[in-house]
Amino acid sequence: MEYAEMPYEEARKRAVRVLEDGYGDAVVLKDEHGYWALYYFYWAQTPPPAATPHWMEGPLGEVGAIRSPYEMKKFLEEVGEPDFLNDVD
């Protein structure tokens, strides 16, 4: 399965690290190519189990290069990407 289509629940099970803040979750996966960050933007709420990532970054050489959801959101705004903030309520 390609990471860009990976449901939140499955990504959490395979995660080597999860970054959570008020903007969403960055679920970090690792494979033979490096680290991948799957971003699910649902504010401080837990994303639905079947939610697919709003954005993906990688492969990166080290886990420390992964941006927090806030940092990624800010970056996406700066480069003109649409707003990927969902609400599950």
Rank of each mutant, 00 (worst) to 15 (best):
D25I: 00
G24K: 05
V28Y: 02
L60Y: 13
Y3W: 09
G64R: 14
Y23H: 03
A50S: 10
H33D: 12
S68G: 07
A50R: 04
A11P: 11
W36D: 01
F75Y: 14
Y42N: 04
Y70F: 14
Y39T: 01
A4H: 10
R67W: 04
G22K: 11
E57M: 14
A51I: 00
E81T: 01
N86Y: 13
A65M: 15
Y70L: 09
E77N: 12
E32Y: 10
K30H: 06
P53G: 07
V88G: 09
A11Y: 01
H33W: 12
L19F: 10
P48E: 08
T52Y: 00
D21L: 01
L19R: 05
E20D: 10
G22C: 09
V79S: 11
Y39L: 02
K73W: 11
A50Y: 05
F41M: 08
D31Y: 05
F41T: 02
I66E: 02
M56H: 03
E81Q: 15
R67P: 00
P69Q: 07
V88I: 12
E77K: 13
G80D: 07
D87Q: 14
P47I: 05
L19C: 04
V28R: 03
G22W: 04
A11L: 03
D83H: 12
A26L: 05
E2S: 03
V18T: 15
Y8N: 00
P59Q: 09
F84G: 08
Y35N: 04
V63F: 08
D89T: 13
I66D: 07
E5Q: 15
L60T: 05
P48W: 00
G58C: 12
M1W: 07
